[in-house]
Amino acid sequence: MKTIAMLMLLGVAAPAAAATTIDLRFIGEQRIPGGATFNGPVVGGLSGIDYDAATGRYKVIADDRSALSPARTYDFTLIFDAAGFTAATPVASTVLLQPNGTPYPLNQIDPEAIRFTPTGTLVYSSEGEATATSQQTPFIREMTADGRYVADYQLSTRYSPSLSGATGIRNNLAFESLTFSPDGTRLFTATENALAQDGPAATLTTGSPSRIIAFDTATRSAVAEFVYLNDPVAAAPNPAGQFTTNGLVELLALSSTEFIALERSFSVGTGYSVQLFHIDISNATNVIGIDSLSGANVTAATKTLLLDLDTLGITLDNLEGISFGPTLANGNRSLVLVSDNNFTPGLFTQFLAFEVSAAAVPEPASWAMMIAGFGIVGGALRRRKPVVLA
Rank of each mutant, 00 (worst) to 15 (best):
G247V: 06
G35H: 07
I4T: 05
T315F: 09
G147P: 01
T102M: 15
L335Q: 01
N286S: 07
D317F: 02
S156F: 09
S282Q: 11
G44N: 01
N286Q: 09
A82L: 10
G147C: 04
T179P: 04
G147R: 00
D50Y: 01
A62G: 03
A329S: 15
V233R: 02
T89Y: 00
N283R: 14
S126L: 06
M8C: 07
T3Y: 05
F277L: 12
D198I: 06
T167K: 11
T102K: 15
L163N: 09
A236C: 08
S126D: 13
S273H: 14
L352M: 09
N330W: 10
F80L: 01
A5T: 02
D231I: 03
L78Q: 10
L96R: 04
L337T: 07
L46D: 01
F80S: 01
T203V: 08
Q135I: 11
E129G: 03
A166W: 02
G295Y: 13
A360K: 10
G28Q: 06
G331W: 11
T144K: 08
T179F: 03
Q108G: 07
R31L: 12
T327C: 11
F188V: 09
A190E: 06
I288L: 10
L68W: 06
A14I: 14
V388G: 04
T131W: 07
S93Q: 14
T121E: 13
R158D: 15
N193Q: 10
L9W: 07
Y272T: 12
G199K: 02
Y104K: 05
Y228L: 03
L24V: 04
P105H: 05
T77K: 03
P41D: 05
K2C: 03
A301W: 04
R65S: 07
R72S: 06
T102S: 15
V223T: 13
A359E: 13
V249T: 09
G378W: 07
S292G: 12
N171D: 12
S210I: 10
V338N: 00
L337A: 07
A201V: 08
D216A: 11
L337E: 03
R170E: 06
V377S: 12
I4V: 08
E142Q: 08
G269E: 13
S69F: 08
A236T: 14
